[in-house]
Simulated assay, not measured.
Amino acid sequence: MARCTLVPLPAQTRPDRDPVVCLVASEASAAVRLSPLAARLRAHQRVRLLLTACGPAAADTLTALGATPDAVVPLESPSLTAAPALMSALDRVFTDAAADSVVVAGDSAIAFGAAMAAFWRRIPVVHLDAGVRSHDLTAPFPEEGHRRLIAQVASLHLTTTPEASANLAAEAHAGRTVLTVGSTAVDAARLALARAPLGVRRPGGRGAPR
Protein backbone atom coordinates (compact mmCIF):
# COMPACT_ATOMS: atom_id res chain seq x y z
CA MET A 1 0.00 0.00 0.00
CA ALA A 2 1.37 3.41 -0.97
CA ARG A 3 2.24 5.78 1.85
CA CYS A 4 0.30 9.04 1.94
CA THR A 5 2.48 10.75 4.53
CA LEU A 6 4.02 13.73 2.77
CA VAL A 7 6.10 14.89 5.76
CA PRO A 8 7.50 11.73 7.36
CA LEU A 9 7.86 11.14 11.07
CA PRO A 10 9.99 11.44 13.07
CA ALA A 11 10.96 14.98 12.17
CA GLN A 12 14.64 15.84 11.93
CA THR A 13 15.30 17.67 15.21
CA ARG A 14 18.48 19.30 16.41
CA PRO A 15 20.45 17.16 18.88
CA ASP A 16 21.17 20.18 21.09
CA ARG A 17 17.54 20.74 22.19
CA ASP A 18 14.35 18.92 23.06
CA PRO A 19 11.67 18.71 20.36
CA VAL A 20 8.95 21.37 20.43
CA VAL A 21 5.38 20.10 20.15
CA CYS A 22 2.76 22.75 19.41
CA LEU A 23 -0.83 21.92 20.38
CA VAL A 24 -3.41 24.15 18.69
CA ALA A 25 -6.75 24.46 20.48
CA SER A 26 -8.89 25.80 17.66
CA GLU A 27 -12.08 26.11 19.75
CA ALA A 28 -13.51 25.15 23.13
CA SER A 29 -14.31 21.53 22.17
CA ALA A 30 -10.80 21.06 20.79
CA ALA A 31 -9.39 22.56 24.00
CA VAL A 32 -11.22 19.88 26.02
CA ARG A 33 -9.79 17.08 23.90
CA LEU A 34 -6.27 18.49 23.91
CA SER A 35 -6.06 19.24 27.65
CA PRO A 36 -5.15 15.67 28.75
CA LEU A 37 -2.45 15.50 26.07
CA ALA A 38 -1.11 18.86 27.23
CA ALA A 39 -0.92 17.59 30.81
CA ARG A 40 1.05 14.50 29.79
CA LEU A 41 3.43 16.45 27.55
CA ARG A 42 4.11 19.03 30.27
CA ALA A 43 5.08 16.19 32.59
CA HIS A 44 7.44 14.74 29.98
CA GLN A 45 11.10 15.51 30.61
CA ARG A 46 12.28 15.47 26.99
CA VAL A 47 9.56 17.42 25.15
CA ARG A 48 8.87 21.16 25.13
CA LEU A 49 5.17 21.98 24.90
CA LEU A 50 3.75 25.08 23.24
CA LEU A 51 0.03 25.16 24.00
CA THR A 52 -1.70 27.63 21.69
CA ALA A 53 -5.32 28.76 21.99
CA CYS A 54 -7.23 30.39 19.13
CA GLY A 55 -9.55 32.94 20.67
CA PRO A 56 -10.79 33.56 24.21
CA ALA A 57 -13.20 30.60 24.35
CA ALA A 58 -10.42 28.09 23.75
CA ALA A 59 -8.10 29.92 26.14
CA ASP A 60 -10.69 30.05 28.92
CA THR A 61 -11.53 26.36 28.47
CA LEU A 62 -7.88 25.33 28.70
CA THR A 63 -7.36 27.45 31.81
CA ALA A 64 -10.47 26.02 33.47
CA LEU A 65 -9.07 22.52 32.86
CA GLY A 66 -5.72 23.41 34.40
CA ALA A 67 -3.87 23.74 31.10
CA THR A 68 -3.02 27.44 30.84
CA PRO A 69 -2.09 28.29 27.23
CA ASP A 70 1.39 29.53 26.39
CA ALA A 71 0.10 31.64 23.50
CA VAL A 72 -3.29 33.02 22.47
CA VAL A 73 -4.01 33.87 18.84
CA PRO A 74 -6.84 36.42 18.59
CA LEU A 75 -9.88 35.71 16.45
CA GLU A 76 -11.12 38.88 14.82
CA SER A 77 -14.05 37.18 13.10
CA PRO A 78 -15.36 33.63 12.56
CA SER A 79 -15.88 34.36 8.84
CA LEU A 80 -13.77 32.96 6.03
CA THR A 81 -12.38 36.44 5.36
CA ALA A 82 -10.42 36.21 8.63
CA ALA A 83 -8.72 32.93 7.65
CA PRO A 84 -5.60 34.47 6.01
CA ALA A 85 -4.84 36.62 9.07
CA LEU A 86 -5.32 33.66 11.41
CA MET A 87 -3.06 31.42 9.34
CA SER A 88 -0.40 34.13 9.24
CA ALA A 89 -0.58 34.44 13.03
CA LEU A 90 -0.26 30.68 13.47
CA ASP A 91 2.62 30.59 11.00
CA ARG A 92 4.46 33.12 13.17
CA VAL A 93 3.80 31.03 16.28
CA PHE A 94 5.16 27.89 14.59
CA THR A 95 8.26 29.57 13.18
CA ASP A 96 9.09 31.61 16.29
CA ALA A 97 8.92 28.45 18.41
CA ALA A 98 10.76 26.34 15.80
CA ALA A 99 8.00 23.77 16.19
CA ASP A 100 8.93 20.17 15.36
CA SER A 101 5.32 19.02 15.17
CA VAL A 102 1.84 20.55 15.31
CA VAL A 103 -1.17 18.80 16.84
CA VAL A 104 -4.69 19.79 15.76
CA ALA A 105 -7.99 18.34 16.94
CA GLY A 106 -11.29 17.95 15.16
CA ASP A 107 -12.54 19.34 11.89
CA SER A 108 -13.15 23.06 12.30
CA ALA A 109 -11.97 25.64 9.77
CA ILE A 110 -9.36 26.80 12.30
CA ALA A 111 -8.02 23.27 12.76
CA PHE A 112 -7.78 22.91 8.99
CA GLY A 113 -6.01 26.27 8.71
CA ALA A 114 -3.52 25.31 11.42
CA ALA A 115 -2.79 22.02 9.68
CA MET A 116 -2.17 23.77 6.38
CA ALA A 117 0.02 26.44 7.98
CA ALA A 118 2.18 23.68 9.48
CA PHE A 119 2.22 21.69 6.25
CA TRP A 120 3.42 24.66 4.22
CA ARG A 121 6.34 24.94 6.67
CA ARG A 122 7.00 21.19 6.28
CA ILE A 123 6.21 20.67 9.95
CA PRO A 124 4.68 17.23 10.66
CA VAL A 125 0.98 17.41 11.51
CA VAL A 126 -0.67 15.15 14.11
CA HIS A 127 -4.46 14.91 13.82
CA LEU A 128 -6.35 14.09 17.02
CA ASP A 129 -9.86 12.67 16.59
CA ALA A 130 -8.97 11.62 13.06
CA GLY A 131 -10.93 9.31 10.79
CA VAL A 132 -14.42 10.63 11.56
CA ARG A 133 -16.43 10.36 8.33
CA SER A 134 -20.02 10.86 7.19
CA HIS A 135 -19.04 9.86 3.62
CA ASP A 136 -21.07 12.84 2.40
CA LEU A 137 -19.20 16.06 1.60
CA THR A 138 -22.37 18.08 2.08
CA ALA A 139 -23.15 16.85 5.60
CA PRO A 140 -21.77 18.21 7.77
CA PHE A 141 -20.57 21.04 5.57
CA PRO A 142 -17.77 22.10 5.47
CA GLU A 143 -16.47 19.89 8.31
CA GLU A 144 -16.48 16.66 6.27
CA GLY A 145 -14.20 18.30 3.74
CA HIS A 146 -11.89 19.60 6.47
CA ARG A 147 -11.58 16.07 7.91
CA ARG A 148 -10.56 14.58 4.60
CA LEU A 149 -8.16 17.38 3.73
CA ILE A 150 -6.39 17.30 7.11
CA ALA A 151 -5.89 13.56 6.60
CA GLN A 152 -4.02 14.23 3.37
CA VAL A 153 -1.34 16.34 5.09
CA ALA A 154 -1.18 14.59 8.48
CA SER A 155 1.82 12.48 9.37
CA LEU A 156 0.13 10.81 12.34
CA HIS A 157 -3.59 10.08 12.78
CA LEU A 158 -4.94 9.53 16.32
CA THR A 159 -8.42 7.99 16.24
CA THR A 160 -10.99 7.36 18.95
CA THR A 161 -12.45 4.11 17.58
CA PRO A 162 -11.45 1.15 15.38
CA GLU A 163 -14.17 2.27 12.94
CA ALA A 164 -12.40 5.61 12.48
CA SER A 165 -9.13 3.78 11.85
CA ALA A 166 -10.91 1.62 9.26
CA ASN A 167 -12.15 4.77 7.52
CA LEU A 168 -8.57 5.96 7.22
CA ALA A 169 -7.39 2.56 5.99
CA ALA A 170 -9.97 2.79 3.20
CA GLU A 171 -8.26 6.04 2.18
CA ALA A 172 -4.79 4.40 2.19
CA HIS A 173 -3.79 5.76 5.61
CA ALA A 174 -2.72 2.74 7.65
CA GLY A 175 0.13 1.07 9.46
CA ARG A 176 2.20 2.93 12.04
CA THR A 177 0.78 6.32 11.00
CA VAL A 178 -2.64 5.46 12.48
CA LEU A 179 -3.16 4.83 16.20
CA THR A 180 -6.46 4.11 17.97
CA VAL A 181 -6.10 5.97 21.28
CA GLY A 182 -9.69 6.32 22.49
CA SER A 183 -11.48 9.51 23.46
CA THR A 184 -9.37 12.15 25.15
CA ALA A 185 -12.63 13.95 26.00
CA VAL A 186 -13.30 11.12 28.47
CA ASP A 187 -9.80 11.63 29.88
CA ALA A 188 -10.55 15.34 30.25
CA ALA A 189 -13.74 14.56 32.19
CA ARG A 190 -11.80 12.31 34.55
CA LEU A 191 -9.17 14.97 35.12
CA ALA A 192 -11.87 17.56 35.79
CA LEU A 193 -13.50 15.27 38.36
CA ALA A 194 -10.13 14.70 40.01
CA ARG A 195 -9.69 18.48 40.31
CA ALA A 196 -13.15 18.99 41.86
CA PRO A 197 -13.14 20.02 45.54
CA LEU A 198 -13.45 17.17 48.00
CA GLY A 199 -16.68 16.84 49.91
CA VAL A 200 -18.94 18.13 47.14
CA ARG A 201 -22.37 16.53 47.41
CA ARG A 202 -25.61 16.82 45.51
CA PRO A 203 -28.15 19.28 46.99
CA GLY A 204 -30.18 17.51 49.68
CA GLY A 205 -27.72 14.62 49.95
CA ARG A 206 -25.38 13.74 52.77
CA GLY A 207 -22.85 16.48 53.32
CA ALA A 208 -24.95 19.14 51.61
CA PRO A 209 -24.80 22.55 53.31
CA ARG A 210 -27.83 23.50 55.38
Rank of each mutant, 00 (worst) to 15 (best):
G66M: 11
A31T: 06
V32Q: 13
T63D: 07
A58W: 00
A67C: 15
S79Q: 14
D70Y: 03
S29N: 10
L62I: 09
C54H: 02
T63S: 14
L80A: 15
A39S: 12
T52K: 06
A53T: 06
P56I: 06
P84T: 05
A39Q: 10
Q45H: 05
P74F: 05
L51P: 03
L62M: 10
T61S: 03
L80D: 14
V73G: 03
S35G: 12
A83N: 04
P74E: 13
R40K: 10
A39G: 13
R46D: 15
A58L: 09
T61L: 04
P36N: 10
L65E: 00
L62Y: 02
L50Q: 14
T81N: 10
P56A: 15
A64Y: 00
C54G: 01
T52L: 01
P74G: 09
V32W: 02
L80S: 13
A57T: 07
T68K: 13
A57W: 02
P78M: 11
T68A: 12
L37Q: 11
C54S: 04
V72E: 05
Q45E: 15
T61M: 14
R40S: 15
A53V: 04
A71P: 00
D70L: 12
C54K: 09
S29C: 08
A39V: 01
A57G: 10
L34G: 07
T61G: 02
A43Q: 12
P36L: 11
R48C: 09
S79P: 01
D60S: 13
L50T: 06
A39N: 07
L34M: 10
V73H: 02
P78T: 12
A38E: 08
L41C: 05
L75S: 00
L34F: 03
L80Y: 02
T68Y: 01
A57V: 03
V47L: 15
R40W: 06
P36E: 11
P84D: 12
T81Y: 00
S35E: 10
S29H: 13
P84S: 08
L34W: 06
L37Y: 03
G66Q: 08
A83S: 08
R33I: 01
P56Q: 14
D70T: 03
A58S: 09
S35H: 09
A67L: 10
Q45A: 15
G55W: 04
L34Q: 08
R48E: 09
H44E: 14
G55T: 07
L62G: 07
S29P: 03
C54D: 06
V47I: 15
A58Y: 01
V73T: 05
A57N: 08
V72G: 01
V72H: 03
R33K: 15
P69V: 07
S77P: 07
A82R: 08
Q45C: 07
A64T: 07
T68C: 04
R42P: 02
S29I: 10
A30K: 13
Q45N: 13
R46S: 14
A59Y: 00
T81K: 15
L65Y: 01
R33H: 14
R48Y: 01
A71T: 13
A53W: 01
P84Q: 09
V72W: 02
V32M: 05
T81D: 15
A71C: 14
A58G: 09
L62A: 10
T68H: 08
P78C: 09
L50C: 08
V32K: 07
R48Q: 07
T52G: 00
L80V: 14
L80R: 12
D60I: 03
A43F: 02
P69F: 02
P84I: 06
